[in-house]
Design a protein around this nucleic acid. Structure first.
Lengths: 344, 344
DNA sequence: TACATTCACTGAAACATTTCAACTTTACCG
DNA sequence: CGGTAAAGTTGAAATGTTTCAGTGAATGTA
């Protein structure tokens, strides 16, 4: 009767001597079926090794049991931490999480979104390459619940969750100024990335409001936010004339900061005495560096968790209102800016 | 006619004035439909904004378009690199990749596998908590294509892809011996993890075959393979009596090595002069450390790619034979074992 | 002209579930 | 004991595709 096929509800029904509908009820509304038959059905299921076919379920019920996250850069642990937060929220809601990686390429992102659309996922969380890309508008037009992560989107088209990047830039520079630095580098890029732009804006704001010469906040642009770009920024820094050379660097993320740290130490500089370094994100590896890295912490898991809750609200609550959640970043001071001699 | 619903093939067929079957052919066998109607159908599709419903496709066609990878530890970048390799292979085969994380917990792993079964994924790649767990046998019994990654499974029940961990242990210790070390620590755990066990076995083999006293290869067990365990191993190391204290440490993975490196430098040791360190895996952050880490490289992406190819073969090739693919690890010597003074 | 072959398209069945109105059975009440 | 309500179960329809046997039309062949 089963010749090889994996068993279906029909087989279970036959084995338990009940109708299809009853088997379905056992799975979906166990409270409406009597204890005796429920037990009988459950035994039949486990004897046959029945596994519910999710495609059929989804087709008929019209609703999928998965969320998706399209991350920006799989080589940056920051995004995996965000994903972990989403995963936890998804787990609570008994949903699966589909993780995709656009690798900063808009075309890849579009391909992933198309697939997710075909999948009819319940909601999409995304850290977009470009929040103004047309394929994002299309999601909205289609009514797919979506929330933008790590970037504040334009107010009323969708929800978003992010940290206040301008403030992040401010507190990083404030900290360096407090440590007595009067010439500071900002390292990061491309500036088209909103995160980078806003951190730079915050840095400049604070620098000016402390009464410093704008010329003394030196912007060293990079191609990407990677360790190797951090290293090469270090070389450029070393190449500056001594009286122009900054005594501290604020990097737009921790990967850059780690690269810069490595290059500096390799070149014989003492960190923080010759060069102080502040990163951004506060990934695990920042704290684990040989000279533990001062960094502007984002609540990474919390970001993900909050985003998942918003997308779920949009998916299930008929009078959902879009909102822009903004978390407050926090400076975590470590040895890369605070000299041991000075503190002790 | 469409009132709100997302359009189906039926709507497209009506709009283009053809039958359902023709629309399906346009999507699946475009060569059998005439250029003129194909064009008409395609126009109708884009005008209506048609997106194929994957559940329905999968239900009818009986075959899904996704692979899944269940990774062991989401905090270790090594596994993300493996996942990236799988993703590339999946992309080539036009499949999606579902990534799950068991977080080293068998129960979580079982939950994920159950969901994947319901999803009827085409194949499962997994780095298992315990390769002998019953839920893995069940996959095999059900005939789901599966390959074990980063661990050699028992010969003929399924495919597996891994690096020769025993050899990895040997070359690490050989390298340290060559650098003149006569007392070496092996740091790692739990020993129940096959990878750890075999690396230790290799280390001991090589140590003995070089004619050293087994007593001088000191095993410092850890609870997990994490940065913080690396730090605490460093403290234990520092606590040893000076004449017992090793001058070099071989860590079972790079996270441990990074933790050890940090702790050692913080305690004022010079690396490699006071303590040489070798890691395992060669993740990006190993090369990016302040003192770049010598490490036993695994071909991370290649591991994933090969595993994906095996699972696809099992899924599509009727006379597939299980095989155990074994890659050769390679020592990458960097500053954490090779003193600058010595090389120059 | 009759016949065979190829080409383009059609229509209905099938996939495995959920849902829901209708039906039976049981329990309760006066 | 008759009537009603509640509880439990059934059967068929519906979901959006793919597949495949079949229908016509057009083309080529004798």
């Amino acid at each position: 009767m089963l010749n090889g096929r994996t068993p279906s509800v029909k087989d279970v029904a036959a084995a338990a001597g009940v109708s299809l509908g009853t088997v379905s009820n056992v799975m979906n509304r166990p409270e409406v079926v009597s204890a005796r038959t429920r037990e009988r059905v459950e035994r039949a299921m486990s004897e046959l090794g029945f596994v519910r076919n999710e495609s059929a379920r989804q087709l008929r019920a019209g609703t999928s049991r998965t969320l998706a996250y399209v991350m920006l850069d799989g080589t940056n642990p920051f995004f995996h931490d965000v994903a972990q937060g989403i995963e936890l929220a998804a787990e609570d809601a008994d949903l699966s999480l589909f993780i995709c990686n656009s690798n900063s390429r808009s075309a890849r992102e579009a391909v992933h979104l198309d697939r997710l659309l075909q999948q009819r996922v319940q909601g999409i969380l995304i850290t977009p390459v470009d929040p103004a890309a047309p394929h994002l508008d299309e999601l909205i037009r289609r009514g797919v619940p979506m929330v933008i992560v790590d970037r504040i989107g334009n107010a009323d088209s969708c929800c978003s969750v992010a940290v206040d990047d301008v403030l992040g830039g401010r507190i990083a520079v404030e900290h360096l100024a407090e440590q007595g630095h009067t010439r500071v580098a900002f390292i990061g890029g491309p500036e088209s990335l909103g995160q980078v732009h806003e951190r730079l804006v915050g840095a400049r704001e604070m620098w000016a409001s402390l009464g410093n010469d704008p010329e003394d906040l030196i912007y060293l642009p990079t191609e990407t936010l990677s360790v190797s770009e951090g290293r090469s920024a270090g070389e450029r820094l070393a190449g500056l004339a001594a009286r122009r050379r900054p005594t501290a660097a604020f990097c737009a993320n921790d990967l850059l900061a780690l690269g810069l740290l490595q290059q500096s130490i390799g070149a014989g500089l003492r960190v923080p005495d010759d060069l102080a370094i502040v990163g951004f994100d506060d990934i695990e590896f920042a704290a684990a560096a040989a000279v533990p890295l001062t960094s502007v912490r984002q609540p990474r898991q919390e970001l993900g968790r909050a985003a998942a809750q918003l997308v779920l609200d949009e998916a299930t609550n008929p009078d959902h209102r879009h909102q822009q959640l903004q978390f407050t970043p926090e400076l975590v001071a470590r040895a890369s800016t605070v000299s041991r001699n000075r503190t002790m």
